[in-house]
Design a protein around this nucleic acid. Structure first.
Length: 118
RNA sequence: UGGAGCAGACGAGGCGGUUGCUCCUUCUGGCUGUUUUAAACCAGAAGGGGAGGAAAGUCCGAACUCCAAAGGGCAGGAUGGUCGCUAACAGCGACUCCGGGCGACCGGAGGAAAGUGCCACAGAGAAUAGACCGCCGAAGGGGAAGCAAAAGCUUUCCUCAGGCAAGGGUGAAACGGUGAGGUAAGAGCUCACCGCCCUGAUGGUGACAUCAGGGGCACGGCAAACCCCAUCCGGAGCAAGACCAAAGAGCCCCCGAAAAGGUGGCCCGCCUUAUGGGGGCGGGUAGGUCGCCAAACCUUCUGAGCAAUCAGAAGGUCAGACAAAUAACCGCCCUCGCUCGAAAGAGCGAGAACAGAAUUCGGCUUACGAUCUGCUCCAACCU
RNA sequence: GGCGCGGUACCCAAGCGGCUAAGGGAGAGGUCUGCAAAACCUCGAUUCGUCGGUUCGAGUCCGACCCGCGCCU
């Protein structure tokens, strides 16, 4: 599996965001919430939301870069093709790259477990 | 050595590699399409570019776009020593005056004799000054004592009529200051010096400076109160705006008067329109494309100018996204800190802070560094 | 990204440059009551988001900064 992140692999349309907010399944985490919904594209797509409450522009960009890096490096951990929306919450501004990575993997595992049951 | 002032550079290590993003150019393949070639799109390869000095705050000024060709007036706003620079500016440079500092240096700047308004409390009086305490009471009035025949004279008291504004006191501010003369006591009443005002001469483009003569003091403060004077400004803003255009719905143009609406806060002016008649097939949402990166540009040199800056020559082109691009990590070297060691050296850690382009420039302001550099001033010590 | 509005006690707020910075709610204490409620009385801002400037004097006028909110695709 490739480790790229091309334009079509990112959620870019306002409609897609609104659809996920309405129909997506939510997983609440300590530092971010994750909204997902399966798609029929054959590949997964990623969207990142970091509001201005989190911090200044430098920090917001850094968080987005972390999220994208983990997504493209670990596409094989995603159980099936879906749209993923990562919404950063207050508290994320203090943590390190390693802590964030652990949290991301744990959240993906939770989704895999939940979907197996269903 | 310590303290201080001003100016300036840099913005963070260097080399190489792996994975990944974005834009440009060239090439290859695919898809679509057609008479054919291509464009666009997708994938790949090669080469190249890829955040800041403040990209920030959005405080000023412009370019650009639309609002009728943005036009006239009012209202409103901005600036404020002088001269210059600039596309423009609340910016920059040089100079002038005033204030602060021992000093390097720093800060301020039109008009208060065009008008209006305000100056609480305190105080006698606060802008056509005023008299609480106080000082005087000379000439005038009254009382007492002495001298004198008398007229009167001398001394003294009253503080009566009145005079004064020196001193006390109030206040942020009290209607020139100091000294001398003068006087009953005083007072620019007079004089000297200082301040102020007026006139003239000289120098300077000018703010202003210097000098000479005169006046006899008049002109309190506040215009970041209204205002006056001079100069400048139409309004919005790239989410401006232009073009293509699914779905859905019908929509548009021409003719004519009143009314309504719009056009910048108002007026003028200008534009549009219901209804009726006639004619025609466009307008525009989602979405897409453009605007969107070569510009008042950067570097070096030469010349003009005290300087800001200007002129010329040569060379360079180095972000262009749109839920929005720089990250994760490895190796070697370098610098710094800590530990071990007699030393050579070894190990560990760190390489930041403020902060992320969003139409583009010129400034201002604010934030920041464990990177530096230069000049200057003051103090102490040494020679 | 651009444009606009606001910040005064715990909350809502008024405030021509001049007295101790109105008022309402909530709170605390008291009066009343057997105890409460209601009513009545009393109390609280060392300072008006922060820092400078103008003025004799600033919550108010003028700058700079901080924070909060709204509108425009």
């Amino acid at each position: 599996m490739d480790e790229g992140l091309r334009a079509h692999e990112r959620i870019r349309k306002k409609k897609d965001f609104l659809f996920l907010y309405q129909k997506g399944h939510r997983v609440k985490g300590k530092y971010f919430n994750l909204i997902y919904h399966e798609n029929n594209l054959g590949y997964s797509r990623l969207g990142v939301v970091v509001s201005r409450k989190i911090g200044k522009a430098v920090l917001r960009n850094k968080i987005k870069r972390w999220v994208r890096e983990l997504f493209r490096r670990n596409k094989s951990r995603i159980p099936f093709p879906m749209d993923i929306l990562v919404v950063a919450t207050q508290g994320i501004e203090g943590i390190s790259w390693q802590v964030y990575r652990e949290e991301y993997f744990r959240t993906l595992n939770r989704i895999a477990h939940r979907e197996k049951k269903n």
